[in-house]
Amino acid sequence: MTRASIPVGQIGDYEIKQLKIFKTVADCGGFSAAETELNISRSTISIHISNLESRLNLTLCRRGRAGFALTEEGSVVYDATIKLLGELDDFRNTINSLDTQLSGSLTVLFSDTISLDNRARIPDVFRRFSKLAHEVYLTSEVARMTEIERMVMSEEADIGFIPYHRSLDGLEYQHIYSDHCFLYCSRDNPLYDLHEDELSDEIIDGFPVVYAGMKTQENINGHLANMNLKATAYNYESRLALLLSSKFIGFLPENYAQPYVESGELKAIAPDRRFYTLEIMAITKKTSTVNKVRSLFIKTLLDFYHEH
């Protein structure tokens, strides 16, 4: 090789296209034979090869009466081109297969009844995610929302679903749906048969109340401030059991209480003024570290909600 070495510099899409044409010409043994393979004219092929030679400051092939042949430099470039195109294909295949070759684990935590709430569509989200990442080991548990926050922050869990009650700097929040919560009593409760005009705040606030037993949003605390707090039950199921005992009243999400209202076992008390709204959120940790499994689950979740 007699030419002075000149740095090639950045290789872009155009140079890669020229290298592909050069490889095809070499494989076909000439410009004429490559016309059909490339579906471009011989003159266009010649222009591309000439431009590539100018770009590399090399003579890659001889063409003339003696036929087509790679130069010594052309043979080196040909071998390097095969290696480069092979690595590009490997890169492309790796990226394209990431979603289908994911492995590892994913831990998802739910507060109370969110996992089976029809508005969250969690079984559908799990079904779609499992098709995309069938090698991922899934863990799904129910926990108190403060415990869910702690575990997501410490990366013991990947994603949590909780009622929004505060904003923590280390967490990201994605709204899922809203819950409207009303105050309920059971059929055997003395408040059940009282007319709305008889349900004064004094009477309501004097009756024993079961509540979550933790500090929550200000609008909830405002409702509880003057009430007769006599029992604690964080989970809706255990709270419902105390309500059905007829000895307590308490707040429940409308969607959760609806079947019991329809059967006559529960009744909303003063629904025009004794209610509040819970925003149900999906929470993840703010981090610069890429977690492909978690990212795929969140994308699956958001895509599903967007479609429905």
Rank of each mutant, 00 (worst) to 15 (best):
T2E: 13
R3P: 00
S5Q: 10
P7T: 02
G12K: 11
I16G: 06
Q18L: 11
L19M: 15
K23E: 15
K23L: 13
C28L: 04
F31R: 05
E37V: 03
L38Q: 03
T44N: 14
I49H: 01
L56N: 01
N57I: 00
N57H: 13
T59R: 04
C61S: 10
G67T: 07
G67W: 10
F68H: 01
G74E: 00
K83N: 11
T94V: 01
L98V: 14
G104T: 06
G104L: 08
L106H: 10
V108T: 12
T113A: 04
T113R: 06
N118Q: 11
A120D: 02
I122M: 15
R128T: 12
T139A: 10
T146D: 15
E155G: 00
P163K: 07
S178Q: 11
L183A: 04
Y184H: 10
Y192F: 15
H195W: 00
E202Q: 12
I204T: 08
D205G: 03
P208L: 05
V209R: 03
G213I: 01
T216D: 11
N221P: 02
M227F: 07
N228C: 08
L229V: 03
T232Q: 13
Y234N: 04
A241P: 01
F251Q: 07
Q258V: 00
P259E: 12
G264C: 06
E265D: 15
R273I: 10
Y276P: 02
I280L: 08
T284H: 02
K286T: 04
K292V: 12
V293S: 11
F297M: 09
D303E: 15
Y305E: 12
H308C: 07
